[in-house]
């Protein structure tokens, strides 16, 4: 067991080092991307300020509670982008061009190799931005800070990342059947951005069907909403258990779907 862990640890370290070398060869690009992310977040904050000029709350979320949710969303999506997004996005092309063959031939778990190959240090640099926003928003709220809450928050943030990862990994695996999915990836992007807003706003839509679907069937709404709820609003143990159950369940399920898809993989070229 330790030998296996050690081996995968070494592979991970190798990936991380290669990524750093690649990133360092485009330093200006790195700086500009970070600046543009800050700009994007800044613009989002302007939007939030604009909305809260007119109202005191959005379906029960006050200005600073919502800022905390936005910070949590930013934190989770940065973590997801740093480790997985680029890798998962490439899977579709690897299947189409037949490059998946080279990954399959390597003596290590295919899902692991596909998922961790490149780390985006640019996205990694965004993580502090999310944390800063969370800390600021939290300091403006009169909520007490306990170790239990912070621990739950960390666990839920991680399970949120795992949830996003599993959903997108399954989605990428479907390119075995769909081959081309450019428009589908736009849709994916939209679905994950749903989670930027309080889940409650979707409740009146289509008699609650939409809220139900996005919470239980395609659970993107819980990703940022749950951790934010736990920290600044209500702490409901059963929701935490649900989030963990979803994360672990989806992770296992995504692996099943992938292995099933692999059996249909036909490779490409000659």
């Amino acid at each position: 067991m330790t030998a296996v862990l050690g081996r995968y640890g070494r592979i991970l370290f190798c990936f991380a080092r290669n990524g750093l070398v690649r990133e360092l060869s485009f330093r200006v690009n790195f700086a500009v991307t970070v600046i543009s992310e800050i700009l994007w977040l800044g613009m989002m904050l302007v939007f939030v300020e604009v909305i809260f000029r007119f109202t005191k709350q959005i379906d029960g979320w006050s200005n600073h509670e919502y800022l905390f949710l936005l910070g949590t969303h930013f934190l989770i999506s940065s973590l997801f982008e740093a480790f997985f997004f680029g890798n998962l996005q490439r899977i579709s092309a690897q299947i189409r061009t037949g490059d998946l063959d080279f990954v399959l031939l390597k003596p290590a778990n295919t899902q692991f190799l596909l998922s961790f190959e490149r780390i985006s240090y640019t996205a990694l640099a965004n993580i502090p931005l999310g944390i800063i926003l969370c800390v600021y928003a939290f300091s403006q709220l009169s909520v007490s800070l306990t170790v239990k809450h912070v621990a739950m928050f960390v666990v839920l943030v991680c399970s949120g990342v795992v949830t996003l990862y599993s959903l997108m990994f399954m989605f990428s695996a479907t390119s075995v059947w769909l081959i081309r999915q450019t428009s589908a990836s736009h849709f994916w992007f939209y679905l994950t951005s749903c989670s930027k807003y309080p889940a409650e706003i979707y409740k009146p839509m289509v008699r609650g069907v939409l809220w139900f679907a996005l919470t239980f069937v395609f659970p993107v709404l819980i990703v940022a909403n749950l951790p934010a709820n736990v920290m600044v609003r209500v702490f409901e143990p059963y929701l935490v258990a649900y989030a963990l159950f979803i994360a672990v369940g989806l992770l296992l399920f995504s692996s099943l779907v992938f292995n099933w898809a692999l059996r249909k993989y036909r490779s490409a070229s000659s």
């Binding site: 959005i58 379906d59 450019t182 428009s183 589908a184 951005s193 807003y197 979707y202 009146p204 839509m205």
Partner: peptide, 26 residues
């Protein structure tokens, strides 16, 4: 791909409707 893509480009309108309903109510 184009037809599907055009439809999906309207998907965010769902969030718009939901968000502004909540803002106006608030």
């Amino acid at each position: 791909d184009f037809l599907i893509g055009t439809f999906l480009r309207f998907a965010p309108i769902v969030t718009t409707i939901a968000l502004w309903r909540a803002v106006y109510a608030g």
